[in-house]
Design a protein around this nucleic acid. Structure first.
Lengths: 342, 342
DNA sequence: CACCTGTATCGAACCGGTTCGACTCGACGC
DNA sequence: GCGTCGAGTCGAACCGGTTCGATACAGGTG
């Protein structure tokens, strides 16, 4: 393998001069720099990552810790992952992906062995056992998902409270007065998926303000249970004219449920979901939805992480808690309720 | 940070003795080994990955190169990825995930900088530009996906020819005589997705053998186009009683297409797909399908890669081309055709 | 008792980079 | 004509592991 020593020899200079010529950290005469660059080209030199990491204590790798739960909509995770890896690549970092069950252990291993310069944690729960260690680690960390305690880390998440509000607003503005909100199953909440509450509470608060009747349910996370759930909700509340979905399985199941009931959207019922654009595209869901902005969240987390890695350790910037504002992707599934139409 | 020098000092031995005590590569007295282990515990020592990589030329990291195409069903990739990362973890390796557009460049970078011990390539096309470099790289490589030239690498893929055969067999055994096969769109084939042809050819050959009429189509890869395609195929071939799907979008769209036509499966039409179990579960697709075995393929690729990394470089084992046999996951969507029933 | 063998340990070198301090040399000022 | 300065370069040390060769010492053998 070709080392910087080989480059130096071919260029006729010392190893240190070759190093400085490449890094530019000291002034080296243009002629020598050119000879070194030529030698690099000629030999096809690439620095050895391990040696550089050892010398500089910088690996140019970030650790990405997922939490892949079989009862969640796993494929959606890919969007977050790609957001992270793509942005990291643009910033000159590679990404080590860890899917290991025991996230705390993985975190410790990568941290103490100095394999990475920082961490991005995905799918962070309200009380996440990985955070305790992360705060004490030598490397900085950023999360996608809002934990209860945010000190010492940079936090990124969708603003779920605002999401709940604008979902109710969108329906109320169209004239709806009675809505059904289908959330994720209760065990997602129990596991720390606080976003379920955050969205529901935001929706409830806004519904109260505007005098809207809101029926809240936890739906199942898979077929056929969720299909039955949806039918039951619709049977129970015949006066409801709008359906809010914070549950991917419900969104996927709804087209056939509506078809079976002989309903169509938005003519008979207005629908507004909360899922990623990618999810909608793949399954051609015809419903407007608050975008989960997976890609953007992943990108923002990496950007902030890299800023902290490369930033002045002395004047450490205060930690962020960034809740990105929700946007509705309009697919035309909201219209005034049937009764109000001429 | 705590180094092996610290451990040695606390244990009262030299650095080399501490190293041997931990690696077991030379005999060290039990008493000393214990003192070293105690020191490790006391200080919380973990070897520095960069230093170890430099000294041993082994990083214990494998590079995973995806190819994420926006017009393919991206979320399915996650199953392959998790198969790789999970199995790698079990074998003591971490995984560097690269999503970079320019796969060749990424491969070169990771290879020449010695960041990884080997590569797993996903979504490998028939003529994949990454393979040329991979063959010449210092590190071994395994692919998921069958290229035309397999020399110098280990190749894993689903046996698509056999898949085509058993799909036709399953229908023929149930008494069907006229089938429609909906494949991926033609541009997937053009890009090198040879599995489309492999499955179709296997199906055609078996259909010819058994005197079955097979109508072959390339369907669109998204709604609403694929829905219209499906309706057209069904209109064109009113005598067809069985539907074979090698197209995820078609599978996702079929339930609503059938509902709209007032058909149900398997009473009116038998359906057999080819997609992952995970895909079926997530979207509650009620159709039997040949499983794409993403998880298993990822795991097998890693196992073989690690065997090659750690294997005797002298007696290099011959390279594998492993096509794993298809299995049908029965979800009850195949029944005898209506006409044949009493 | 000299000799050999095997066990247990140590010191030094090495992996391939980066970085610090010192040195040379020419230009410049007085 | 001597001291100063800055540009350009070199040698050596260092990062934190692993590994080779040498050494010390114990026990067994003739």
């Amino acid at each position: 393998m070709v080392t910087i020593g080989d480059v130096a020899r071919v260029a006729g200079v010392s190893r240190s001069t070759a190093s400085y010529a490449l890094s530019g950290k000291r002034t080296i005469s243009p002629a020598v720099v050119q000879r070194v660059l030529d030698a690099v080209d000629e030999l096809g030199y690439t620095p050895n990552a391990g040696a550089r990491a050892l010398a500089t204590s910088q690996t140019k790798v970030i650790g990405l810790l997922g939490r892949f739960l079989s009862d969640e909509f796993a494929p959606a995770m890919l969007q977050y992952i790609l957001g992270v890896t793509n942005r990291a690549g643009e910033l000159g970092y590679d990404t080590l992906l860890v899917s290991e069950e025991d996230g705390v252990n993985a975190l410790k291993r990568l941290s103490t062995s100095r394999m990475v310069d920082g961490f991005v944690l995905l799918n962070v729960a309200e009380h996440d056992d990985r955070l305790g260690f992360l705060r004490e680690a030598l490397q900085p960390g950023a999360t996608v998902g809002l934990p209860e305690q945010c000190d010492g880390i940079d936090v990124f998440d969708l603003d779920f409270v605002a999401s709940g509000r604008i979902m109710v607003d969108a329906m109320a503005d169209a004239g709806h007065r009675e809505l059904i909100l289908v959330s994720q199953p209760e065990h997602v909440v129990a596991r720390g998926g606080a976003y379920v509450w955050r969205l529901a509470d935001g929706a409830q608060a806004r519904a109260d303000e505007r005098g809207i009747e809101l029926h809240r349910y936890f739906g199942a996370s898979s077929q056929p249970a969720i299909g039955e759930d949806l039918n039951r909700y619709l049977d129970t509340h015949p006066g409801a004219t709008g359906l809010l979905l914070n549950n991917e399985a419900a969104a996927a199941a709804l087209p056939s449920v509506l078809a079976a009931r002989g309903l169509s959207s938005p003519a008979d019922i207005s629908v507004l979901g909360r899922y990623s654009d990618d999810f909608a595209r793949t399954f051609s869901l015809p419903f407007s939805a608050v975008d989960s902005a997976a890609d953007e969240l992943g990108r923002r987390a990496v950007e902030q992480l890299v800023a902290r890695i490369e930033g002045d350790p002395a004047g450490a910037a205060p930690h962020l808690v960034e809740l990105i504002p929700p946007t509705i992707h309009d697919r035309g599934s909201i219209a005034p309720p049937p009764a109000s139409r001429g």
